[in-house]
């Protein structure tokens, strides 16, 4: 028996909007720790890891670890039917091939339930090692989204370079080139508006911009985004989900041939 009650149902709506275009089908894993997902995009270039900790749910009952295969496009369609202020409850019986999403309006005057078919998904679970990164950049998520959008109108790839000067995002295309430098800026009114750069050593990596633009669909989940860069590893683009966990996107770099 599985029953997860999320008072801030809009979080789950936002999570689905953030991942549905990157991944078609995925297994949601439910355990005492929380509700999680790990999945690669179809080309195996990007990986998404989501965790919503059990403590973040108003009610969390998960009698045994279960994995529920869902089509994320269909799940997003169902969650779009929930109001932004609705409380969302996920329910599944042991051995059942369906999951029920229950939407309750804040005043309890409207209660809806949507039942979705589960699917068998043969997916591999990858071990993501703890790593030391050469540089970690925290910046406003809206700023990062703006940079990715602007650069993708010029080129297809972005070079992210972190030096003691700041973090530089560069692209080039048929019409020309673009460079955007963000310097560390901690003298702002609100901490979430700061750009903070922790650099152990300079690093420069090249990535396909279209993946970053897909990751920025998670912007509504968090005011800030963290980029962790190392020359030997995929970049990690992390959006923290307040009180609950995170959504992390891993993207393999492009390497000079």
């Amino acid at each position: 028996m599985l029953e997860l009650r999320l008072v801030q149902g809009s979080l789950l709506k936002k999570v689905l909007e953030a991942v549905k275009d990157l991944v078609n089908d995925a297994n949601f894993d439910c355990s005492a720790t929380g509700f999680s997902l790990q999945a690669m995009d179809s080309s195996h270039v990007a990986l998404v890891a989501l965790l919503l900790r059990s403590e973040g749910f108003e009610h969390y009952r998960c009698d045994r670890n279960i994995s529920m295969g869902m089509n994320l496009g269909n799940m997003a369609k169902m969650l779009k039917c929930a109001g932004n202020d609705d409380i969302i409850t996920l329910k599944a019986d042991d051995g059942s091939d369906v999951v029920t999403f229950m939407f309750e309006s804040p005043t309890q005057d409207k209660i809806a339930d949507f039942e979705m078919k589960l699917m068998d998904i043969d997916s591999e679970h990858l071990g993501i090692p703890e790593a030391e990164y050469h540089a970690i950049v925290r910046m406003p998520s809206s700023e990062f989204a703006r940079i990715c959008k602007d650069l993708s109108s010029i080129g297809d790839t972005v070079v992210i370079s972190v030096t003691k000067e700041g973090v530089k995002f560069s692209t080039r295309g048929d019409i020309g080139t673009a460079n955007i430098v963000c310097r560390q800026n901690t003298t702002v009114d609100k901490p979430e508006e700061a750009t903070v750069i922790e650099m152990n050593e300079p690093v420069s990596l090249t990535f396909a911009l279209r993946y970053f633009n897909s990751f920025t669909k998670a912007t509504p989940l968090s005011n800030t985004v963290t980029l962790s860069l190392s020359s030997e590893l995929p970049v990690v683009v992390e959006y923290k989900i307040a009180e609950m966990g995170y959504i992390r996107f891993y993207l393999a770099p492009k390497i000079e041939d």
Binding site: M40, H44, L47, E124, L126, A252, K254
Partner: peptide, 14 residues
């Protein structure tokens, strides 16, 4: 010319 690396090059199956 850049070669796109695969995520499986970095992370192994559990």
């Amino acid at each position: 010319p850049c070669l796109q690396k695969n995520i499986l090059y970095y992370f192994n199956e559990d």
